[in-house]
Structure formats: C-alpha cells, structure tokens
C-alpha cells in the first residue's frame, strides 16, 4: 500500500503552548465549519451572507493559528494535514461549537455565547510571550467584536420578538447553556498555558461573563438559564458528543480519500 506508507498524519505534541493554540484553532475551525453548512441555506439572503462572513473570519483565524503552530513545531507537512486529518479524539474544541444548526435561534445563541467568551479568551493573549500569537489575537478581536454585535442583536430580536421566536430561543438556551461551563474551566491545559506565558488566565472572568450574558438574555424577553444546570464537559480533552464525528466525516473527506495530495 504505497499511498498509505507515504502518508504521514499529524504528530502529537507535548508542548503546552502548542496544545493551547490547538484548542483555540479547533474552536475556530469547528464553529466556522458549522456556520459554513448554512452557506446557501440561510433563512434570509442577507443573513446567509452574514453567517458566511463569520464562517470566513473563523476559518481564517484557525488557518493563521495552524500555520503559526507549524512554524514552532514540526507536527505536519502543512496546515491542512494538521487541521483536517487528526482522529476525532485529538480534536480539542469545546462541545459548544460542534452543536448543530437546529434553527436560526440556536445558531445566533451559540454564536453569542461563544464569541462573548472568545473575546475574553483572546484579550488574554494580547500580552502573550508569543508575539505572533498576540498579533493574531489582536486581528481576530476586531472580527469577534462584529460577531458579538451581530449575534447579540439577533438574540434580542428573537428573544423579544414573537411567541414562536421566544420559544425557539428558550429551547436554544436550554440546549446550549449546558456547554458554557466547559469554556471557562481552568483545566490543566489552561493552567499550563498560563504558566508557559502563552496567555493570562481568562477563566477568572467567568462570573463577569455570566453577569454580562445574563443581562442580555433577560433583556431578550426575560430569558433565564436554569440556575442548577449541570455543565457538560469533555471536548477540550477529546471526549466529544455525537456531533463531531459527522462534522469530521465531511471535513476530512478529501484528505482521507486521497491522502497526501495537493489540491
């Protein structure tokens, strides 16, 4: 099997700096991929374009991060092999970004919850001892600010719109809130990254974030997340739910069908 012999997938890394950047990159990649599913199918043509714009921003961020990782560590022959060929358990995105595009309420709430976290996460990179990473964060923060503005506007419109739209937002909130705790957990990889000088500890802003988000939700037709929601975790350590495998079967289709080729 010459093709298989020739083909080398992405290598493992033990460097906490790289591991943390892979997490950032996977988050952006998987959410960008999810949003790209809506391209051509948005509920209104203007909204279709807006979702595609966000998808472009996120996949662009992921691409910069993967490329930067490869300048520091030789994990793969190129960013595509690193991004598109790892087995499921080696993707380290949080569970939230892989949640499905149930409807526009789910999509906008997922975006709002993620982007408002991502803003804090990337602000914590601005003083990174890796100046390239800091520069990527600075560029991305402008895009993130737009994503928040767009998604927040629609969370408010849908939450405080009609009964149907509010019901859909309430459903989205009950589905998605469970995945927010994971994003702000100061797990071993965050702690290692803080120690390595990759990032400051943004998870300390969890309660500020909760306050900010809950204020918007309550403006949005009085939506409130359930107080005692049990938070579900795992994605950051490769323990995914049913969604990611299907995402990967699309995303990796070409790289795995025709290993090692140029496109």
């Amino acid at each position: 099997m010459p093709a298989l012999e020739k083909y080398i997938g992405a290598k493992h890394t033990r460097n906490p700096h790289t591991i943390y950047m892979l997490r950032l990159a996977d988050n952006a990649l998987i959410l960008g991929q999810r949003l790209s599913e809506m391209c051509g199918h948005g509920p209104e043509m203007e909204l279709d374009m807006a979702m595609t714009n966000m998808s472009l921003d996120l996949i662009g961020q992921a691409k910069l991060l993967f490329e930067h990782i490869l300048t520091l560590e030789d994990l793969a022959p190129n960013a595509d092999v690193l991004a598109l060929t790892r087995p499921l358990e080696r993707y380290s995105n949080c569970l939230l970004v892989a949640q499905p595009n149930v409807d526009f309420a789910h999509i906008m709430l997922r975006q709002f919850l993620f982007s408002s976290m991502q803003k804090r996460q990337y602000e914590a990179l601005l003083n990174s001892n890796d100046s390239t990473l800091a520069a990527i964060a600075e560029k991305s923060l402008k895009e993130i600010a737009y994503h928040i503005r767009f998604a927040k506007g629609w969370v408010l419109r849908l939450g405080d719109g009609t009964k149907e739209s509010r019901d859909r937002m309430a459903d989205a909130l009950s589905c998605l809130w469970r995945f927010t705790g994971e994003m702000f957990t100061c797990d071993a990889r965050v702690a290692d990254a803080v120690e390595a000088g990759t990032s400051s500890d943004f998870t300390k802003t969890y309660s500020d974030w909760k306050l900010e988000v809950k204020t918007i939700l309550s403006e949005a037709g009085g939506l409130t997340p359930h107080e005692n929601t049990r938070m579900i975790m795992g994605g950051h350590f490769g323990q995914h739910d049913d969604n990611l495998g299907h995402i990967l079967s699309d995303m990796q289709f070409m790289q795995l069908s025709y290993p090692g080729l140029e496109w």
């Binding site: 599913e37 374009m49 998808s55 996949i59």
Partner: peptide, 25 residues
C-alpha cells in the same frame, strides 16, 4: 463547502458563493 480539500480552498469557495448571494441581491 463542508468538504473542500484544504482550508484555503474552503475560504475561497465560501467567499465565492457569498459573492453569488451578493450578486443575487
């Protein structure tokens, strides 16, 4: 879009399809 073989191709394809939505508008 979801199966484009590389990140670069995915970005180009998204931008192109988005242009088409724009042109429709």
């Amino acid at each position: 879009v979801t199966r484009a073989p590389t990140l670069k191709r995915k970005l180009i394809l998204l931008a192109k399809i988005q242009d088409e939505a724009g042109h429709g508008l």
